[in-house]
Each structure stands twice: as C-alpha cells, then as structure tokens.
Design a protein around this nucleic acid. Sequence first.
DNA 1: ATGCAAATGAGAACGATTACCATTCGCATG
DNA 2: CATGCGAATGGTAATCGTTCTCATTTGCAT
Lengths: 143, 143
Amino acid sequence: MDETPPEHLKSAGLKSTLPRLKILDLFKSGSERHMSAEEVYKQLLAVGENVGLATVYRVLTQFQQAGLLVRHNFEGGKSVFELNEGTHHDHIVCLQCGHVEEFYDSAIESRQKKVAAELGFEIHDHSLQIYANCTKTKCPNKR
Amino acid sequence: MDETPPEHLKSAGLKSTLPRLKILDLFKSGSERHMSAEEVYKQLLAVGENVGLATVYRVLTQFQQAGLLVRHNFEGGKSVFELNEGTHHDHIVCLQCGHVEEFYDSAIESRQKKVAAELGFEIHDHSLQIYANCTKTKCPNKR
DNA sequence: ATGCAAATGAGAACGATTACCATTCGCATG
DNA sequence: CATGCGAATGGTAATCGTTCTCATTTGCAT
Ligand SMILES: [Mn+2]
Ligand SMILES: [Mn+2]
Ligand SMILES: [Zn+2]
Ligand SMILES: [Zn+2]
C-alpha cells in the first residue's frame, strides 16, 4: 500500500532507482520512525531486498541533503534518520529502553533565538535531546 | 603557577600519576577550554610532555566519571571535554570558525523539566547545542 | 630499598562511516 | 525494441575516533 512514486525522487533531483525507492518506502511505511543506517540495511535484508550497506549510507546522506530525511546524532555514536515532515521537533530518549519520544516546545524554541541573538549569532539550527527514564509502564526496560 | 596538587586527584579516588597531573593542569591552565582527546594529546606533545594517546583517552574518561570533567558530543563525531565547574551550561557553536560560546537560560532549563514530566519521564540530563554563524567581527571565518 | 598492584604506552582491534572502482542500471535516443 | 553513456550500485579496502591487549613502568605502602 502507498508505493512511493518515482516523482518524489525526481523532484528532489535524484534519479529513481530501485535501492532509493526501497529505502524511501521503508521510511514511509516501515514500523520504525527513527532508524540508523545499519537498521535500514537489516530491515531491507529481512524483507529479502538486497541493498549494499554502502548504498544505504550514500542514499541516506543524499536524502538528507535533498531534504527528504533529517539526521540526528543521539548518544551512542550512530546517526539516526527520520522522514522530514516539515515540522521541527526535538527528542527525549529513554536511557533504559532506548525509546524515543518527540516533542515541540515553542518557549524553548523562541528562547534559543533570543539567546543566539544576544550573543551576536545567526542561528542555523540546533540539536536538543533530553535523556531520561520512563516512569510509566510503557518502558520495557530492555537494552 | 597554580600547579595541581595531588590531593585533587586523590580525593577523586584516582592515584596521583604524572600523566593525570599533566592532563588536569592542561585544563586548569591551558588556553583552550573545550578540548578533544586528540587536542589534549597534541597540546602535551607541543610542550614536550609525552603521554600516550591511549592514556589520554583513558584519563579523560576517568576524569569524567570522577566528575572532574564534563564530556560533550558536538557535531563532527569527536567528544570534547571541559573542566566541570559545577554549573551546567549549554553551547552555541559557530559553523564557520568553530568558536564555542557558553550560555545558560533558566527558561529553557525549566521548560525541559516540564516537557519531560508531562511525557512521563524522569530527566537524567540533556544535550543542547545551537549551531550558528557569528555575525560580529570576532569570527575569523576559518575552518 | 623492596614488592606489588595499578597505571602506562605502543600497537592491534574495533565499530561506524567513507572511498574506490569494476560492474550494472536508468533512461534517452534512433 | 536495441544501443550507448553517464550515473548508481555494491563489494571491499580504507579511514577515523576510540577502546582493548599486554608487556613494561610507576606510585606508594611496607
Ligand atoms: Mn523525530
Ligand atoms: Mn562549556
Ligand atoms: Zn528544537
Ligand atoms: Zn541546558
């Protein structure tokens, strides 16, 4: 359902190839919203799709540059990507289970602008992650 | 001036060795406030002190665990460390020259607590960096 | 001065990512 | 539909930051 039409890629200036379509589909219809290169690679293998790891890395970076994906650097050294749906948000990461929750707080956003302005900087972007522990039942406490 | 007395290390549960003293001194009296392992290593070489790179990595981690240093993960893949002076702050990094400016905004801090609480998380810590361009004269525009 | 556990340092190993490069693919053309 | 060519792919080697291994040295209590 909801196959990615080649136009999405073409309009991003990327020619429509099989690996690219598969990767984009994975983000559009896959179960995980935030994925590392390795995770994308394994998910594809699991479905019998064979895409080289090098290609996964290359395509993820291209998608990011084209604005289709956003890259985040959470702790742990590996980059994770997610679909760019136009609206900025930040993340809260559970230290026990690794679960990622998204949030947007306009007060935090506007304060950042003010801080930067006061220091004589022109903001390009920012990276905010809260590291925390789930207190609710949902945390399976794995990892 | 201001040689680091061995007591500082001992009270942190670390035995006072030459490499540890040299590294701590570098942070206490060196010119750079935020340094990566590689930078620490080179600074020491430059002064004729030689400390193995493995030791630098080991000691930085130990200092962090002992609470003497704080580790940050700015973009670029390498960890940077700075003296822990007890007060939390966040960073704004110039994309052109790499210059790092520190700031603390209590509104941002308290909003983070509220966001986490609302989502049912117990905050452990957070990481906030603003990436921006110097508009003032100070930015030498290198890098 | 002596002994021994802890620390060091040179280099190997590691995980994530990128670079290389021969082969394959997408697609425009006749 | 066959052909051609430049772009894309994917296996592998290389790179980068960091950690591990282990033989040697050091700090420090005796
Ligand atoms: Mn997200
Ligand atoms: Mn700082
Ligand atoms: Zn934000
Ligand atoms: Zn903060």
